[in-house]
Simulated scan of single mutants.
Amino acid sequence: MRRNDKRLRVLGAAVLACAASSAGAAVEWAGVNLAGAEFNGTSFWPNGDEIRYFRNAGMNVVRVPFLWERLQPALSGALDATQLAALRRIVDDARAAGISVILDPHNYARYNGNVIGSAAVPRAAFTDFWNRLATAFRDDANVMFGLMNEPNNMPTEDWLSAANAGISGIRNAGAQQWILVPGNAWTGAHSWLQNWYGTPNGTVMSGVVDPLNHYAYELHQYFDGDYSGQSSWCNAVNGAAQLAAVTQWLRERGKRGFLGEFAGGANDDCRAAVTSALGHLAGNTDVWLGWTWWAAGPQWGEYIFTLEPTNNYTVDRPQMAWLRPFFASDQIFADGFQ
């Protein structure tokens, strides 16, 4: 009986996928995180072959995580020329392939372990970082700015102040692209309205200040027992249910969302969870801009969620088949992220 129930759950998820595809519903951007440059002691920047593989597969955006400290070795100092050139190469390769890039300082609202807003890392330093980085990429139409990866273990009010400081740095640089703004508590979609981490994101994050009003909220969602993304098994097979409350919150405020991280192991329960979640996004494109799977990159090896192909970029990972029905339309960045 349990096996039959599982088949029904997977079949239901597949029906959602087919319905979304046949109706022509698609988010604007669908892609993957190309991880590596966010690891200490290494610098695995994505390469052009990876970018072209995912573009040829049908994706049109990559999120590129990196350490803040890698790009800016000293607070309020110059950006490292070598690392900036590596990031520039990715943006240029992506443009040539017809794909867009999300720049993602992957620091959890910290610099060398010190939280933004502390005496060690004043908010002005975050403004300075984003002003420098946005200045470098303000003319790149295929770039979007992911403000910070997964702030956590801080008052939500403090994170809002830091976020607004970063936004001011971007806009003062003259950059007009989309900004992705996460919430506190690892920016979990399922916990957006909860208060176990302090004042809920749903209460505080309405206070985002962008003079261009050209931002979206970045949400992350995993489907294992504690929503941490550390298990290959998915307990929350109804992925849509984890997103429904934040979808309503966004719609009530006339705002947009972007699912910056989600994933599942190669098993039926995770396929049900993922396809349910992506079906929800496809059915609510007035709210959801897009998504990026976590993750790909050659340094992962046999990581439970890897989407990195094998056999010299010729063999897909199993999860790629789940994602294909939900790939974005081919509008890419004709008008850019601006």
Score class of each variant (00 low, 15 high):
residue 105 P to W: 08
residue 240 A to S: 14
residue 113 G to A: 08
residue 293 W to M: 02
residue 288 W to E: 10
residue 43 S to V: 12
residue 64 V to G: 10
residue 289 L to F: 10
residue 337 F to R: 02
residue 154 M to K: 06
residue 85 A to Q: 13
residue 110 R to H: 06
residue 297 G to A: 08
residue 181 V to D: 09
residue 314 T to C: 05
residue 337 F to K: 07
residue 161 S to T: 15
residue 19 A to V: 08
residue 159 W to E: 10
residue 155 P to A: 14
residue 151 P to G: 01
residue 330 D to H: 11
residue 147 L to V: 09
residue 7 R to M: 10
residue 186 W to M: 09
residue 35 A to V: 13
residue 224 D to H: 05
residue 269 D to F: 02
residue 273 A to V: 02
residue 209 V to H: 12
residue 288 W to K: 01
residue 7 R to E: 13
residue 151 P to H: 06
residue 273 A to E: 05
residue 195 N to I: 08
residue 246 V to L: 08
residue 321 A to L: 11
residue 35 A to F: 12
residue 165 A to F: 10
residue 23 A to S: 13
residue 61 V to L: 12
residue 57 A to G: 12
residue 272 A to Q: 01
residue 70 R to H: 13
residue 300 W to D: 11
residue 290 G to T: 08
residue 95 R to P: 07
residue 49 D to G: 09
residue 101 V to L: 06
residue 276 S to N: 07
residue 1 M to H: 14
residue 259 L to F: 03
residue 257 G to I: 05
residue 17 A to M: 03
residue 184 N to W: 04
residue 306 T to F: 11
residue 147 L to M: 13
residue 259 L to W: 03
residue 227 Y to I: 13
residue 178 W to T: 10
residue 75 L to M: 04
residue 180 L to H: 05
residue 235 N to P: 00
residue 51 I to Y: 06
residue 299 Q to M: 14
residue 315 V to F: 07
residue 159 W to R: 08
residue 267 N to F: 03
residue 13 A to T: 01
residue 335 D to K: 01
residue 337 F to C: 04
residue 13 A to K: 03
residue 110 R to A: 11
residue 118 S to N: 02
residue 87 L to G: 09
residue 143 V to R: 07
residue 303 Y to D: 07
residue 84 L to C: 01
residue 262 F to A: 01
residue 325 P to W: 10
residue 289 L to I: 12
residue 75 L to K: 04
residue 241 A to R: 09
residue 295 A to N: 13
residue 286 D to Y: 00
residue 202 G to K: 10
residue 325 P to M: 13
residue 327 F to M: 11
residue 196 W to K: 01
residue 143 V to M: 04
residue 250 L to T: 06
residue 326 F to M: 08
residue 247 T to R: 02
residue 56 N to L: 10
residue 156 T to D: 07
residue 220 H to N: 07
residue 229 G to A: 05
residue 225 G to N: 11
residue 28 E to A: 15
residue 19 A to M: 12
residue 306 T to E: 05
residue 212 L to W: 04
residue 300 W to M: 15
residue 71 L to N: 04
residue 175 A to P: 00
residue 17 A to K: 06
residue 19 A to K: 10
residue 142 N to L: 07
residue 111 Y to Q: 00
residue 300 W to K: 13
residue 237 V to D: 04
residue 175 A to R: 01
residue 286 D to K: 02
residue 178 W to L: 15
residue 294 W to H: 07
residue 72 Q to T: 04
residue 63 R to L: 14
residue 299 Q to V: 13
residue 284 N to R: 00
residue 120 A to E: 15
residue 226 D to N: 15
residue 225 G to V: 09
residue 48 G to S: 15
residue 286 D to S: 04
residue 226 D to F: 10
residue 118 S to E: 06
residue 250 L to S: 04
residue 84 L to H: 03
residue 92 D to T: 15
residue 177 Q to K: 00
residue 263 A to K: 01
residue 155 P to M: 05
